[in-house]
Design a protein around this nucleic acid. Structure first.
Lengths: 368, 368
DNA sequence: CTGAAAGCGCTTACAG
DNA sequence: CTGAAAGCGCTTACAG
């Protein structure tokens, strides 16, 4: 390090007219402008030679290469244009928030497919704020991203319009539900999942089943709720609105939602939470009340995040193939980016009920 | 959509000599080559005009703009060079695996800082495979990334060497422990954390404390173990090697590690797992044996992943400021990328014991 | 609002 | 192994 810095000042002394050198802070006069031409002059070689070194070609004499590499490093050279052949292939993956294990699953899937195609995955969070979204659009443009995967965002319509204008392919994972969005979407069979979870509880013998809902503006929330309702109807169990409480997919709302449910004159014997995190919150609420899961109350979640195998007790839940959804989405944008056709404008991957240890038949009613 | 496709074939008909058009698969003769020049010819305007549209300048007649935009979209135009001013600023964040809530925390921190500086965060996983790493290096080079943040990887030395050659700044989060790595590193005070966790159990009155270790090749694992040992020594409790079992930070190993511990002739009254995930595995092992946490056995974890507040019972653990570490790392690479000095080559952020509900004084020994 | 001209940062044959 | 020359894909004044 020290050695480098020493050499650097030598260079600076000899070549004081270069805009800004590495190791110096911005000097009013602006951004540093380290070009291949400047490096060539400095190294006493031609521009093509530097170009060759930069591109790791083999036909450069070892000591020329070493000298040029040193200079490149010292001046902090970065390419200013991209080689025509290997355009930096980039794909943008945009979340509202990066605050849930949910997100990694999707990232994992997208990254796997993208990486295999030599494409980089740029991950961003826009926090449903128009400002952040605008900044992101600007960056997207600067980096000439080849495609965008957007995950459940209220900003869907705005971004879609702008991206369409720029001709950047867009795929939406788990669409929030903008009606006229004509981008391909990838989701899960939420309605069927809601049916399956509720059906499972019904089969165990539960008749009073509480439901902790997700944000009502999201399509997936509504589909899960409707699945719950349909299963009850199929079983001839009347839908009781006081058993349906609101939530926002986060732990806390599962906790309070469950408290509300258990404070009912006639509390439910089972709770279906529309997300795993809310299910965990619900279990905590029950634990605090001294109620055991599943002996006293059964709990079902939705998502099947990997850690749910290890919750206490291991959670019965509806598996949503998040990584698979990510992969699908990545394949779809990549195909579009290469000018291919999209095979399905709207796709729903299957959900699957995973029965673990948080559900059991209802406790026999206390003989009161 | 349909409309677009129709228009597109008109264009193709008129202009059959362009290499490959959008909507057509690769046609042997190679990659499509949609340049601003081609678009200009097609639109019957000059090259500068198309350039203006592409860059969203305001001084273009509305219908010229519309016509050009249509063409750009239809041909799937992507910039082939980057505007000198706004070079796509990119930062690479590299994990071994994207399989833990651990990762999101770091991503969140890095993204926040990078995004604020208009820098994109490219997330990759290299799975400790030299092949994947090589592919990634190639991509990194193509996208001219401005800096790299590497998270705990056995590939540290190789990547460091190569990146240094390219003059790309590198910061390592939670270094695996390559001895001669002269890149800045950001970690947590693992040793102090190990001390604190063990000290807490000691204070509660525990004397037989099991330890489920992390992978021994990682510095952080060794530091946590040494912290555990030191705390015991301070308290005058002899270190008993049969109470130390191996693990790999994942749930499963916590489960089996805890089983081993509880099968001991004289099992521990408390277990300190070197990761939250192993702590969860341990709790599950205890649950299966019918042992209650914390009444029968206390459990402490390490990391304080956000979901640990909601485990059953809420987990006492050592908080590692992962998002903060990500932010630090991002600031450090960004500063380096701008030619600034690094303020600290090696940084450890403080860990903090978070006491929740999984620890309690040991149960009185059964009077046998 | 638009284009002809000059310029920039590279890369790609080609010749030695 | 190296450079002079031509070329490419853009952008930036400048003039109208």
């Amino acid at each position: 390090m020290l050695k480098n810095f020493r050499r650097e000042s030598d260079v600076v002394r000899k070549q004081g007219n270069m805009a800004v050198q590495r190791g110096n802070k911005d000097q009013g006069d602006g951004r540093r402008k380290v070009t291949i031409t400047a490096i060539a002059r400095e190294a006493g070689v031609s521009v093509p030679t530097v170009s060759r070194v930069v591109n790791g070609r083999s036909d450069v004499a070892p000591d020329t290469r070493a000298r040029v590499e040193d200079l490149l490093r010292q001046y902090g050279y970065r390419r200013r244009t991209v080689a025509p052949g290997d355009r930096a292939a980039l794909l943008d993956l945009v979340f509202n928030d990066l605050d849930s294990p949910w997100a990694v699953e999707i990232i994992r899937g997208v990254e796997e497919v993208a990486h295999a195609s030599g494409v980089g995955t740029v991950v961003s969070a826009i926090h449903d704020r128009a400002g952040a979204a605008r900044q992101w659009m600007k960056n997207l443009r600067a980096r000439a991203s080849d495609g965008v995967i957007l995950v459940t965002s209220a900003l869907e319509p705005v971004l879609h319009k702008e991206l369409h204008r720029l001709g950047v392919p867009l795929v939406v994972i788990d669409p929030a539900g903008s009606p006229a969005l004509d981008a391909p979407t990838i989701g899960a069979t939420n309605w069927a999942g809601g049916m399956a979870a509720t059906g499972h509880l019904l089969e165990l013998g539960h008749r009073r089943i509480g439901f902790i809902a997700g944000p009502p503006r999201l399509l997936c929330s509504r589909a899960r709720l409707d699945g719950y309702r349909s299963a009850l109807e199929d079983a001839g169990v009347p839908v009781n609105d006081e058993l349906i409480v609101p939530g926002d997919f986060y732990h806390e709302s599962g906790f309070t939602g469950c408290e509300t449910l258990m404070a009912l004159p006639e509390p439910p014997t089972a709770v279906f939470a529309a997300s795993d995190q809310m299910a965990l919150g619900a279990i905590e609420a029950l634990r605090r009340k001294g109620l055991r899961v599943p002996q006293d109350v059964s709990v079902v979640g939705f998502d099947d995040l990997p850690e749910m195998r290890w919750s206490a007790p291991p959670l019965t839940t509806v598996r949503q193939p998040l990584a698979e959804m990510g992969k699908m989405a990545a394949r779809t944008v990549l195909r579009q980016a290469q000018g291919g056709d999209i095979d399905a404008p709207r796709l729903e991957l299957a959900t699957e009920l995973v029965v673990r240890a948080s559900t059991a038949p209802p406790a026999p009613r206390p003989a009161d």
